[in-house]
Amino acid sequence: MDVLTAIHARRAVRDYRDEPVTDAVLAALIDAATWAPSGINLQPWCFFVIDDAATLAACSARAKTALQDAASDHPELASLRPMLASPAFNIFYNAPVLIIICATTADEMAMKDCCLAAQNLMLAATAKGLGSCWIGLSETWLNTDQAKAALGIPSEFKPVAPIIVGYPNGAPSVPARREPDVRHVGKVAWS
């Protein structure tokens, strides 16, 4: 699959088959992520892979609790309370793998570099017939001292991109796209 096809085919997948992703495929995805552009080629990222169902379930429960607690301070999260309160809801949508891309330095460019690595990873997953989804709802918990300690993430690292990966259970619909707002800039009079 060429890169333009992968870009147009990639979807946020929230329903997965109960099928493991091999270590070789995960290594290929992470390798693709490491080829992302990086400011001054610092490559300030580290990849934490969780592929144990019990650990993922425990992380889901803790992330849901953290979000429910945060909802009182963030009115925009109030509508999520019923979903987060449901014991049946898994914040990782029962995906077999969670890859947490962490910035290893605290500067803003490191976070941007991790986002670029995440995009590469998701496109590589698409090219290999896998689904992926950035689970922003887990970031509140992942960035706590408790989560970092539980997952072995050094305290100075910042979890930036929690990406679930697995084999999709069906194809998500194609979302609409707005026409791009393109503004050409020609000669500019500087004064």
Rank of each mutant, 00 (worst) to 15 (best):
T5R: 14
T5I: 12
A9P: 05
R10V: 11
A12V: 15
D15Y: 01
D18I: 03
D23N: 07
D23R: 10
V25A: 14
V25D: 11
L29I: 13
L29Q: 14
I30Y: 09
D31Y: 04
A32Q: 09
A33P: 08
P37I: 00
S38L: 02
S38N: 03
I40T: 02
I40S: 03
N41P: 00
P44N: 06
C46S: 07
F48Q: 09
D51F: 02
A54I: 01
T55W: 00
S60L: 04
S60A: 13
A70D: 08
A71T: 01
S72G: 11
H74M: 14
E76F: 14
A78H: 07
L80C: 02
R81C: 05
M83C: 05
A85D: 15
S86Y: 00
F89S: 08
N90H: 13
I91G: 04
A95K: 04
I100T: 15
I100Y: 10
T104R: 07
T105K: 07
A106N: 04
K112E: 08
D113C: 07
A117P: 04
L121Y: 13
M122P: 08
L123K: 10
A124T: 06
T126D: 09
G129L: 10
G129I: 10
L130N: 08
L130T: 08
W134S: 10
W134C: 09
G136Y: 10
G136I: 10
S138D: 03
T140D: 06
W141G: 04
A149T: 13
G152N: 14
E156Y: 01
F157E: 04
K158W: 11
P159F: 09
P159A: 08
P159R: 09
A161Q: 14
I163M: 12
N169Y: 00
V174W: 06
P175K: 15
A176N: 05
A176V: 06
R178T: 14
H184S: 13
K187F: 04
W190R: 10
W190G: 03
